[in-house]
Write a protein that binds this DNA or RNA. Structure first.
Lengths: 198, 198
DNA sequence: GATCTTGGCTAATGATTATTAGCCAGGACC
DNA sequence: GGTCCTGGCTAATAATCATTAGCCAAGATC
């Protein structure tokens, strides 16, 4: 039931509406109308409105973490790891901006224990960035006042992308990704020369 | 009625609850309970729940714009102007994080024409930063791929502050303000040497 | 001391809404 | 051709809420 094509349609419609109007302001009737069906009919495919939000946010955090892990696994160099992590972060937020948007803003509407679960995942993700920064500092490659502040700054930039990025906008995905990768290195005061130098 | 001490209490309570649970999820009974009163009693002091949101968001944008204008009026140098604008932006978001948070996230819950009004104010504010960046580029002091992207990045950083900043946290207000001011200059590729050089 | 105003209260009112119940058409399978 | 399952529908159900109506106590004003 949760993987049927129809329930995928429903999730997609819900994602769109949650993004535009918010979870609370979106009714099951709205979601139904978006796929040409009455509200109650949705219950043949999904268990509840809350389940839709849980699935959307859970999947988003899973993908983000998985892509992050894959990205940092490709190199040992601290600066390069931070760059690739940032690029992955930004690319995800540009490419899945609805998911990222809802995943960030509708956590309040998640009921326990889902809320705690997703928050834990998010804390884990944030810790990954903090560790990347700290590792660079420990290796003498980065120079920051606070690893926490630097990692928040990098993460916030990515979340901002989910808000303003448009597929057909004046700035392309690759341009944003590259620019923000550079920016992350500037935020941590890394010199961009070859590893081992400086 | 709108300026009485009681209505200030109500707005403060509403601000807190809107921040924690969202506008839609906050009931008039909740707001009343926060100040030790039943829901309907609030109507002796405020016209509606919507009015509370309108007042909060409108005041926030007014203050932000006013402080921005005051900040950039203190110098002519493009880099210094951008720094002071950023510092003001960040300081506001640290000091009034609830207001900034609600002002950013609950725009969806504003009804027309208030929504359009606040969005116009916000667009104006964003344009101020874009103009600051463009002015620096025109003066040969900044080097950016896209003024739009750079200004979004700076603005997003400030909004992030409203999310994670804590008055009693490990990073103080002044530290964040100073660091982000520096960061803004790095984002636009300004050299931080004296004006007129470089 | 009578009257008025203020600011509270409880009890409607009237919508809205998630979810459930129960019905039904049409295709799949035997 | 008959039976079942799928996925729709309409009509409850039950809760929640913003807002209004109407009442009342206590302090202020005259």
């Amino acid at each position: 039931m949760s993987g049927s094509p129809r329930s995928d349609d429903i999730r997609a419609a819900a994602l769109d509406l949650f993004t535009r109007f918010g979870y609370e302001a979106t009714t099951m009737a709205d979601i139904g109308a978006a796929i040409g069906v009455r509200g109650p009919s949705l219950y043949k495919h999904v268990a509840s409105k809350q389940e839709l939000l849980v699935q959307i946010t859970r999947r988003t955090m899973d993908e983000l973490l998985a892509q992050h892990r894959a990205a940092v696994a490709t190199t040992e160099d601290p600066a390069e790891r931070l760059r690739r992590a940032t690029e992955t972060h930004v690319r995800y937020h540009a490419r899945h901006r609805l998911e990222a948007f809802v995943g960030n803003r509708e956590l309040r509407s998640l009921q326990e224990p889902f809320r705690a679960e997703v928050l834990a995942r998010r804390a884990e993700y944030e810790a990954c960035f903090r560790d990347l920064v700290s590792a660079g500092v420990a290796a003498g490659r980065f120079r920051v006042v606070s690893a926490r502040l630097a990692s928040y700054a990098i993460l916030d930039l990515g979340m901002g992308v989910a808000v303003w990025f448009r597929e057909d906008g004046e700035i392309g995905e690759d341009a944003v990704v590259w620019e923000y990768g550079e920016l992350a290195l500037r935020i941590v005061g890394a010199d961009t020369t070859a590893p081992g130098v400086g």
